[in-house]
Design a protein around this nucleic acid. Structure first.
Lengths: 241, 241
DNA sequence: CTATGTGAAGGGGTTCACAGCC
DNA sequence: GGCTGTGAACCCCTTCACATAG
C-alpha cells in the first residue's frame, strides 16, 4: 500500500533491529491512541485490555498482541494505566511532537482538510496551503493564506516539511507528487483518484472515496442476492428432504 | 474492517456458493476498473496483465490471481479486452446500475463530498443531503437542498437508499448510524473519527484522515532514526570487524 | 484469583513458477 | 512463442489457550 511495502530493499539492509512492528499493528496504534484519549477525557485512569479493545472496536487478544510489540506496558492482574500507555503509543508513532504538513490543492476537499480540526489536534500542524490556480492566490482558508504552487520547494525547505497532502484533480496528481518528492517530502497522503509513482523511500497512502463506496456496493449486491435466494429456497440449512 | 467481517455467521449459513471473492481482491477490483476506464479513454482496446497491473499499481501475478476469481475473461497469449473486462468487473462489483446515496452532515467535509464528481461518475447518485443544524436548512449545496435530519427515514424509504455517508462530528456519529440502520440503510461510509457499533448484516467502512497521517508519521520517524544510525555506523552490512 | 503477555496453531493473502491455451 | 490461469510454497496476521506475574 505504501511505496515502502512495494519497494522493499531500497538499500537499508537490516530491518531496524530495535523492534519491527507489523504493518497491521502500526495501522491500529492510532485507533488505540484515540480510544485512550477518549477514556482519559472521561477521567478513566486505568482500563483492562477488554475495555480498551471494545473502545477501539477490536478484540482483546489482538489488542494485547499489538501492544506486546511495543513492550510490556501493562500490569498483570490489573490492566493498563491510560496516561502511561497513551504516551508510550504516541512515542512509538512519533507524534509526541508536531509534524508540519502542507496541503496542495485547495478546492472543496482541500478546504475541508484545512479546516479539519482532527488534523491539528493530534500531532500535525498545517503550515501552508498551495494551489496553482490564479484565482485562489491571496485567499485565506482556515487562517492561512493560499500560496502559489511554485513556492513549494521554498516552503518545504523553510519549514522542514516531510509530509504532504494531495487534494488536486487526478490529472494533476502525479506532477504534484513529483514536485513534492523533488522538494524533499518523503510521505504523501493522496486524495486524488490516481496511482502515484514515487521513488523508493517515499511512502504514499491513498484515500479514495469512490473505491470505498464501490466496496460497499459489492457487499450490498451480495446481500440483495442472498435475500433473493432465501426467498427461493425457504430456509437453507439441513432441510435435505 | 466491516461489521460483516467481525460478525461472521449472522445466520446465513452457506458462504454463497456461486463464488466467494477474497476481501483483499474485492478492495482492488475498483482500482482495476478505474485503470481500465483510463485505458479506454486513451482508446486502448486491449492490454496485457502486465500493462493493466502497472496502470493499477500492483504486480501482474496479483492482478491475474484476482481476475481469476471472477472467471476467465482474458485470452491466453493475447491479453484482455478492455471494454469486456471493464463490464465484467463492474457487474461483479454491482455498479452497472447507480446506487442512491445520502450524506448526513453538511459541514466542510460533507459539502466537499457532495461536490465530489467521483461519487456520481462511477455508480453512485447522491439523492439527499441532511443536516441537523437549523441554519443549514434550505441551503443548496451541489444542486441539492439541505434537508432536516428528521426526514432521514422518509427519504431512505422513498428513494430505496441502502448506502449512507456520515460526515458529522465524532460525538454525533453513533446516533446518526443508529438512525440510518433504523431507517433501513445497510452500508455506511464513516468519516467521523469514532468507532461505530452496528448490528450484524450492516457493513461499515471507515475513512480516517488523522489515522492515515499518523501511519505516515510512524514511518517518517523510522526513516529519521535510520538516517541517524547510518551516520553513526557508516555503512551497515558486513562490517563485522 | 485476575488479567497480561506470548508461543503455537490456524487462516488468508501474496508470490512463484509452470501448465495450459491461443 | 507468448501470455493467461492456477496449484503450491511462502509469509503475515489473527486467534487460541495458557504460562506468568501481580
Amino acid at each position: 500500500m505504501t511505496a515502502r511495502s512495494t519497494n522493499t530493499g531500497e538499500g537499508s539492509g537490516a530491518q531496524d533491529p530495535h523492534r519491527d512492528i507489523p504493518e497491521a499493528t502500526v495501522a491500529r496504534l492510532p485507533v488505540y491512541l484515540r480510544a485512550l484519549t477518549s477514556l482519559a477525557e472521561r477521567n478513566i485512569a486505568s482500563c483492562s485490555s477488554e475495555e480498551l479493545a471494545t473502545a477501539a472496536g477490536v478484540n482483546s487478544a489482538k489488542l494485547r498482541k499489538d501492544l506486546s510489540y511495543l513492550g510490556s506496558y501493562g500490569t498483570r492482574g490489573v490492566g493498563y494505566d491510560v496516561d502511561y500507555l497513551s504516551y508510550q503509543i504516541a512515542r512509538e508513532i512519533g507524534v509526541t511532537h508536531d509534524w508540519p504538513v502542507i496541503i496542495v490543492g485547495i478546492g472543496n476537499l482541500g478546504q475541508a482538510l484545512a479546516n479539519f480540526s482532527g488534523f491539528s489536534s493530534r500531532g500535525f500542524r498545517t503550515v501552508a496551503l498551495l494551489d496553482a490556480a490564479e484565482q485562489m492566490q491571496g485567499r485565506t482558508v482556515a487562517g492561512l493564506e493560499v500560496r502559489p504552487f511554485a513556492d513549494l520547494a521554498e516552503i518545504v525547505a523553510a519549514e522542514q516539511v516531510s509530509i504532504g497532502v494531495i487534494s488536486v484533480p487526478a490529472t494533476a496528481a502525479q506532477d504534484v507528487a513529483d514536485a513534492m518528492v523533488e522538494a524533499g517530502i518523503s510521505s504523501i497522503l493522496n486524495f486524488a483518484p490516481a496511482v502515484l509513482n514515487v521513488p523508493p523511500g517515499v511512502d504514499v497512502r491513498k484515500v479514495d472515496l469512490s473505491i470505498e463506496l464501490q466496496i460497499l456496493a459489492y457487499h450490498e449486491s451480495r446481500k440483495a442476492a442472498e435475500a433473493d435466494e432465501t426467498v427461493d429456497n425457504g430456509s437453507e440449512e439441513g432441510i435435505t428432504a
